[in-house]
């Protein structure tokens, strides 16, 4: 959602797994502290850093503090309550329900999105007809360009459009289905039915992100030396076999990075869920943590409590990222450079 979309919009920075500063070029001799150099450091490092500290780090620290108070957001008074908010959260059925929904999103959305993206990426790169040279399907460029369309649409517009498409009476989906003779879908409320609301929401998010991850995987697959495929083919490996035992292992770190980024996005998902079902869906079945946080903070004016929710969201996110790392490592991947 922010970070200029990088993390929460599920946009991975163009790098493999962040593993910290790489060893930089050696600095030559020490230079003198001239005016040029001092002003350079102040402006080049000081200015961006000041902005970052004031507008990003500072609010996060404050929020961390508020999570330990009972501040209402309206009154100047606030009492330090220690971990009471967190104890209450654990017993708050509304929040635990929201956590549950978010975790579902965090597990299902990445899995579905990345599976589809990977399949399409493989089809486009090595799914084409032919012998000898491994190549993609014809018109790969077209598929690639079109696939990314949804990604450039603002999340709020995606939500708005799909809400109208899923409208029970005048939406496109029910129009098509009833047109096919499936009359049970007349006035069927996709977003208003406990069994379909969550799957429909997941579908919309997946729709928005498949293209981007597909592009990412295509790039990764193209990075695999062609000789490896040639060799495998000479050994008589079919496409499915090649995909499974060559492509997948070689791009596993790209998949891991992608998993973390889309997972973080899915754990938030505020824009989509709020646009599709602002009131949290039937029986609160699509209410996610971020929505509950907003509600608590601004409709119920319990800012301390809401901040505690924010801290929990941050923790869940970190746990998620750690989990993905661990799974990848257990499955035999290395932290760096599988694909390079």
């Amino acid at each position: 959602m922010t970070l200029s979309g990088s993390v929460i919009d599920g946009q991975p920075p163009n790098q493999t797994t962040p593993t910290g500063p790489v060893p930089g070029p050696r600095r030559g001799r020490r230079r003198k502290w001239t005016l040029d150099r001092i002003s350079f450091f102040i402006v080049f490092l000081g200015l961006p850093l000041a902005l970052f500290l004031i507008f990003v780090i500072n609010p996060f620290i404050q929020a961390g503090y508020y999570s330990l108070t009972n501040w209402s957001g309206f009154s100047p008074e606030q009492e330090f309550v220690g971990l009471q908010n967190f104890i209450d959260l654990a017993q708050d059925p509304r929040f635990t329900n929201a956590v549950g929904n978010s975790v579902v999103l965090g597990l299902v959305v990445p899995f579905v999105t990345l599976t589809i993206a990977l399949i399409f990426a493989i089809l486009i790169t090595i799914g084409g007809a032919g012998r000898g040279q491994i190549r993609g399907v014809k018109g790969a460029g077209f598929y690639r360009v079109v696939s990314l369309f949804p990604y450039v649409i603002p999340g709020i517009a995606i939500g708005l459009i799909w809400r109208l498409i899923l409208d029970p009476s005048s939406g496109l989906v029910n129009g098509v289905l009833t047109g096919l003779g499936l009359d049970q879908f007349e006035s069927f409320a996709w977003l208003g039915n406990v069994t379909t609301a969550m799957p429909a929401s997941i579908f919309v998010i997946v729709w928005g992100f498949v293209g981007f991850y597909m592009l990412l995987f295509i790039a990764a697959i193209k990075g695999i030396p062609a000789e490896i495929y040639e060799a495998a083919r000479l050994d008589g490996a079919g496409r499915a076999r090649m995909s499974w035992s060559i492509t997948l292992p070689l791009i596993r770190d790209n998949v891991q990075t992608a998993y973390i980024y889309i997972g973080i996005m899915a754990l938030d998902a505020y824009v989509y869920m709020q646009a599709l079902n602002p009131q949290g869906g039937p029986d609160s079945s699509t209410l996610v943590m971020s929505q509950q946080l907003f509600r608590t903070a601004f409709a119920e004016s319990k800012f301390g409590y809401a901040s505690a929710m924010g801290v929990v969201i941050a923790l869940v996110t970190l746990v998620f990222a750690a989990l993905v790392f661990t799974v990848n490592r257990l499955a035999g991947g290395k932290d760096e450079g599988g694909a390079s």
């Binding site: 109208l164 899923l166 409208d167 009476s169 005048s170 006035s187 069927f188 409320a189 208003g192 039937p282």
Partner: peptide, 12 residues
């Protein structure tokens, strides 16, 4: 009641 209300935007 007209069915589908729970999935319909209120203005719609």
């Amino acid at each position: 009641f007209k069915p589908g209300g729970s999935g319909t935007q209120f203005t719609a």
